[in-house]
Simulated scan of single mutants.
Amino acid sequence: MNTTSFKETPQSTVSEVAKTAIVAALYVAVTLLLAVISFGAVQLRLSEMFNYLALFHKRYIVAVTLGVILANFMSPTWILDVPIGGIATFLVLLICRAATKKIKNLVLKFVVTAVIFAFSMFTVAIQLAFIYGSPFWPTWFTVGIGELLSMTVGGMVVYSLQKKLDFTK
C-alpha cells in the first residue's frame, strides 16, 4: 500500500474535526469542573476563555458553540440555556470576529471581545428573570461582571498560551 499518496494537511477534515472536538471538550470539562460557579445569577464561567480562540480561527466558533451547548445541558435552567446560550454564543462570536477584524493589537482585540461578551449577558439575565423571577437589571449586572472577570482572567491565560501555541493553524 502506498502511504505517500495521502498527506494530512492543516486543512484536512480529520485535523479540523479533532481541533474542534478538543476545544469543545475542554470548554465542557472546565465548565463542569467548576460547575458550582459556572451557572446562576452570580457566575464565574472560566471556560469562557475559549471565546478568544474564535479571534484566531473561525473553526473555534463551532467548537466553543458546541462546548456551550453541551455544558449547558448541566445547567439548572438547561431547557432555555441550551438553545438560547448556544445561539447567543454563536452570534456573539461572529460579532466579535467582525468587530475585531481590523484591529491589529491583540490586547485591544481581547478587550473589545470581553466587553461585547459581558454586554451579551442580557440573554442570561432574561432567562433567569423568566425562570426564577430574578430582577433583570441587577441580574444582568452580576452576570455581566462575572463574564467580564472570566474573560479578563481567561484572556491572560489565552494571551500567554498564544505566545507558545499557534491558534491560527
Rank of each mutant, 00 (worst) to 15 (best):
A129D: 14
T113D: 04
V112F: 04
G154F: 14
M74Y: 15
G144T: 00
F6M: 01
P138F: 11
S12F: 05
G85N: 06
V158S: 09
T3V: 04
A129H: 11
R45N: 15
Q127S: 07
T77V: 14
S134A: 14
D81N: 10
E147D: 15
F6V: 05
V143M: 04
F119R: 00
K101G: 07
I84S: 00
T142G: 02
T139F: 01
A129W: 11
A63C: 08
L108Y: 09
Y52G: 07
T142V: 03
V153P: 13
L149S: 04
L94F: 11
A54D: 12
A21W: 14
M121H: 00
V23H: 09
A18D: 03
A88P: 06
D81M: 11
S38I: 01
P135V: 09
T3F: 02
V64W: 10
K164Q: 03
D81Q: 11
S150L: 05
V23C: 11
A118N: 13
G85T: 14
A114F: 10
N51T: 15
S120P: 01
S5K: 15
I69S: 02
V23P: 06
G144I: 06
V64M: 02
V17C: 01
S120F: 10
A114V: 02
S47K: 09
A99C: 06
K101W: 09
L46H: 05
V64R: 06
T152A: 14
Q127C: 13
Q11H: 13
R97H: 04
P10H: 03
K104A: 10
T31F: 13
I126G: 07
Q43I: 03
L34A: 15
V62T: 11
S150T: 13
Y60I: 05
M151Y: 09
Q43M: 14
A118Y: 13
T65E: 03
K104L: 07
K164F: 12
W78R: 15
Y60A: 01
A129P: 00
K101F: 06
W78M: 08
I84T: 02
P10M: 03
E16Q: 12
I126V: 13
T31R: 11
L33S: 06
I79R: 00
T89M: 10
A54R: 01
Q43K: 06
Y132V: 00
I22H: 14
P138G: 09
T89A: 14
V143T: 10
E48S: 11
V158F: 01
N2I: 03
Q162L: 02
C96A: 12
E8H: 01
N72G: 04
I116F: 08
V143L: 08
W137Q: 08
G154P: 13
D81Y: 08
Y52W: 08
V30N: 07
L66F: 05
T77P: 02
Y52H: 01
A29Y: 05
N2Q: 13
T65I: 12
K101N: 11
L161P: 07
S15D: 08
I95Q: 02
I22P: 07
I61Y: 05
V28G: 07
D166C: 03
V14N: 12
T152R: 08
L46W: 08
V158K: 00
A21I: 06
L26A: 02
